[in-house]
């Protein structure tokens, strides 16, 4: 039996998304597919363990998954995005962690931020460039404005997360 839920998790909310998927797993719904705002689950027995999200570029995928699988992670599904993939990984040990030090967590969010920012800037240039040449009307400027705000919002939130991580190191 399949179950679909519709929840919006924004890019910097990957930990919240992972927690939701882990809770569903403990209730016996194992993730099969994740797309934008739709999560597809398969009914199984209630299972222990943890689901965590990761983002890797396509060129790193094979090598990375070799290490992750050897360490006991099972790849449930992927979600392609910008020359890379979101990875939904499951580990039977609820304590297992993909990222075990502060620096590598900061690196992960920096990687995500840089990827999305580069893409956002490109999209904005492609949209704004032609509009300037053929005199922009108010109605035609709405879509680019929404996009710009969305990417800025994304950038600010990821930067804020990185900032929080940098300030929560255990060292004095």
């Amino acid at each position: 039996m399949m179950l679909k839920t519709h929840k919006l998790f924004l890019i910097w909310q990957s930990d919240k998304e992972a927690q939701y998927l882990t809770d569903m797993l403990h209730q016996g719904y194992k993730l099969r597919k994740a797309r934008f705002i739709t999560q597809t689950f398969e009914k199984t027995q209630s299972t222990d363990g943890t689901i965590q999200l990761d983002y890797q570029t396509d060129s790193d995928l094979t090598d990375y998954l070799a290490i992750a699988k050897a360490a006991g992670w099972e790849l449930l599904t992927t979600y392609p995005a910008l020359q890379g993939k979101w990875l939904y990984l499951y580990h039977p040990d609820v304590q297992a962690q993909l990222y075990t030090d502060q620096q590598s967590r900061i690196d992960l969010f920096t990687r995500i931020r840089n990827h999305w920012t580069a893409f956002g800037v490109l999209m904005i240039l492609l949209l704004i460039g032609p509009s300037f040449m053929n005199q922009m009307t108010l109605s035609r400027s709405i879509a680019p404005m929404i996009l710009i705000i969305a990417y800025l919002y994304n950038f600010v939130n990821l930067t804020y997360r990185i900032h929080i991580l940098k300030n929560t190191t255990k060292d004095l």
């Binding site: 990375y64 050897a70 992670w73 993909l98």
Partner: peptide
């Protein structure tokens, strides 16, 4: 050593205090 070999070795010489995560090992190796 390969990636998982590193995880096992570090776990062994720290008597289980440190279990490096796969993402941490891969990123640091790079």
């Amino acid at each position: 050593r390969h990636g998982y070999g590193i995880i096992q070795h570090v776990q062994s010489i720290t008597n289980g205090r440190i279990t490096l995560g796969a993402g941490t090992v891969y990123g640091t190796l790079k």
